[in-house]
Amino acid sequence: MKMAARVIDVHKDYVLKGGVVVRALRGVSIDFPEGDFVAIMGSSGSGKSTLLNLLGCLDRCTRGQYLLGGQDVSQLDDDELSDIRSRNLGFIFQSYNLIAQLSVVENIELPLYYQGNISREARERCVQMAEMVGLSDRLDHRPFQLSGGQQQRVAIARALVNNPHVILADEPTGNLDSATGEEIMQVLEALNAAGKTIIMVTHEPDIAARAHRTLRMKDGLLDAHTPYGALT
């Protein structure tokens, strides 16, 4: 089976002022096959976001190895990691994280812009993405003119525009009411059905239940009893 991402014995230490070391990840190993849909759960401070940031190439592990689409990215420098983010990864955040002064299309366009791809085709692709999440009539709106659910749809369109290997979502429904959260989950499920690999952090068991499998984290480790659900 082709792996979208592999994490091998990854450690992450934060050294605080005064030399105190916080061991946020203490040796995590896990494989994400292509087409996987994983929910990561665990108590607050257990290291979920830390793991997701490593997977998202926003940070580097202190020790261990991370393979993204077969490429070892654990030793890349800042510029190379930026490149990987703009080409191979899609982010969905709890608080949407749209840029306020940009319109819907311009927000969707950002990953392409940072790839250096500013063409008419790029713009067209952004419009297609907006259509896909049902916002084709809001292209020139600004984020504050949209509801929370609509903003999260823009964020999803933005996460998809560069056709990434993996989509990373940190509590994507955390700020939404259950009906809107449900809509967002339907969009994610549709994406997964179309073959996208999705890794999602959540606190809500019924959201986690929508994934193929659930990983549990505790004190910087994956819970040994985590059931590895079979891929459908």
């Binding site: 930026s82 983010r85 703009s86 950002l110 990953p111 790839q115």
Partner: peptide, 16 residues
């Protein structure tokens, strides 16, 4: 700051 973080997450290099 937030905007800078978003841009960086979406692939902006330091020089961008």
């Amino acid at each position: 700051t937030r905007e800078i973080g978003i841009r960086r997450a979406l692939g902006a290099k330091q020089r961008d």
